[in-house]
Computed example of a mutant assay.
Amino acid sequence: MTNPETEVPSEPGTDRLAQAVRTAEQALIEFEIAVETFRVEVENFSRLHHQRLGPLYARLEELDALIAEAVAARSGDPEDLRRAREARALVQPMPGVEELFGGWLDSEGLPPEASAMLTGQRVRPPQRVRPSDGARKAYRELVRRAHPDLAPDEGDRRRRESFMVRVNAAYAAGDEALLGELAEEWAAGPVPAQRRPSPAEELYARLEWLARRKEMLSAVAAELEASAIGSMIKMAPDDPDGLLEEVAGGLLTQIAEREARLAGMTDQRFG
């Protein structure tokens, strides 16, 4: 299947150039799909990281402050008192907690996921980091069909851009059913009109634009991969959700150790 916007008359030198443009367009679209998929995974993992691990980090900070305060109360040493003040200063309420957890909090102000982590109780599983295979397949097909770079004219480009905003939102939410509805909507929509063949100069301009676009996407991909969350996902690309469980398990172990230490200090103080 050829792209109408890159069809040119059989003029000397234009056939190979048009083929190069078509190849570059498809390569760019595939690259954009990969970057957007990773962006969704980073965004989802970041949200789950805050939801599930934020309360655990907060509990660790609180325990560290309590331990430092207990040490300072026992010794009265100025250096211990300074450490206790610094540890307490690190204990901060989580910003925007009601927005972060969508107002779904328990009687103690914690989301069920956090309570489950601290008490060992079962709770509904959180949203996965990675969209389902069906959602990913539907997204790829929609991008290949409706990508703005395939528009034959400016009017059709605007239509495609508006449509892709909805596609990206559905993909970010992992809504496979909605992606299916959008695929039907696109299939039933107007067929973009073919534009008149472009001269060789316009094909060269097109290649330059594609190169600039790929350079920009490469910068976005590099930034995502260099981020803390992106680096964590790269540690377990096949099971980022499992990595989250592993980190949570480590934090729970640290919490248990600190709670035991604090309990021992309290027993010594009042024994």
Rank of each mutant, 00 (worst) to 15 (best):
P148N: 01
P148C: 08
P148D: 07
L150V: 01
P152L: 01
D153S: 08
E154P: 03
E154M: 08
R159H: 02
R160Q: 00
E161G: 04
E161F: 00
S162T: 07
S162G: 08
V165A: 09
A169I: 02
A169H: 02
A170P: 06
A172I: 01
A172W: 01
A173W: 00
D175T: 10
E176P: 01
A177C: 00
A177M: 02
L178T: 09
L178A: 12
L178F: 03
L179N: 05
L179Q: 09
G180T: 01
G180P: 13
G180M: 03
G180R: 08
E181L: 10
A183I: 00
A183M: 04
E185F: 07
E185I: 02
E185W: 03
W186F: 09
A187R: 15
A188H: 04
A188L: 11
A188G: 13
P190W: 09
V191A: 11
V191S: 08
P192M: 10
A193R: 15
A193F: 11
Q194V: 14
Q194F: 07
Q194D: 15
R195N: 13
S198T: 07
E201H: 08
E201R: 12
E202I: 04
E202G: 10
E202D: 13
L203K: 05
L203G: 13
L203V: 04
L203M: 12
A205C: 10
A205S: 15
L207Q: 11
L207G: 10
L207C: 10
E208L: 09
W209V: 11
W209G: 02
L210C: 09
L210Q: 11
L210G: 05
A211M: 11
A211C: 03
A211L: 08
A211Q: 15
R212C: 07
M216Q: 15
M216K: 15
A219E: 13
A222H: 06
A222L: 14
A222K: 13
L224F: 01
L224N: 04
E225N: 14
A226N: 11
A228P: 13
S231I: 09
M232H: 07
M232W: 12
I233R: 13
K234P: 09
P237L: 11
